[in-house]
């Protein structure tokens, strides 16, 4: 497994773990503790786990004097980035246009949804980029061959 594959797997696992823990926390706070949904949304605090993805340069260091990223890796990186940002753009347009059509041109929404859009976009990009990277290298083959 090469460095790009390791980073993709690490990011995917971290992001999915953060999302699952957030979901569980919100469900527990809502249905077990009986908190209203706006208070139960504190369970989203687990999203902070995604910050671990910032450790990838330390955890997966570049080997010196060894070729680790060549034209095929560039091609896969380009493809995964294109897929990730295409889906992000599609969701961003939906997130901007759906409230317009639902609430009408004079409708208003709380600014608290703006950071949610940013985090949602970031999570979308990380998940799609990781999945496409892993898919391009091959899910099972640990040698970087599909």
């Amino acid at each position: 497994m090469n460095r790009a594959q390791k980073i993709a797997w690490f990011n995917l696992i971290v992001v999915l773990t953060a999302l699952i823990l957030s979901g569980i926390a919100i469900a527990v706070l809502t249905f077990v503790v009986g908190q209203p949904l706006h208070k139960a949304s504190a369970g989203f605090g687990f999203i902070g786990i995604i910050g671990l993805c910032g450790l990838t340069p330390v955890l997966f260091r570049k080997e010196k004097e060894q070729i680790e990223f060549d034209e095929r890796d560039h091609s896969i990186h380009r493809k995964s980035s294109l897929a990730a940002y295409s889906i992000f753009w599609f969701l961003f347009v939906l997130a901007a246009m759906i409230p317009f059509f639902v609430l009408g041109p004079k409708g208003t929404i709380s600014v608290k949804y703006l950071p949610a859009m940013v985090f949602g976009g970031m999570i979308t990009v990380m998940i799609v980029q990781s999945i496409v990277t892993i898919e391009e290298y091959g899910w099972r083959n640990k040698d970087g061959d599909k």
């Binding site: 070729i67 990223f69 060549d70 034209e71 095929r72 890796d73 040698d143 970087g144 061959d145």
Partner: peptide, 23 residues
């Protein structure tokens, strides 16, 4: 071969097995 061509071994493997068309 990968060292001489300046790529990773995985890329040589992918080219050899016809899964990647090199530049």
């Amino acid at each position: 071969l990968a060292d001489k061509a300046g790529v990773t071994r995985q890329t040589i493997l992918a080219i050899e097995s016809g899964k990647y068309a090199p530049s």
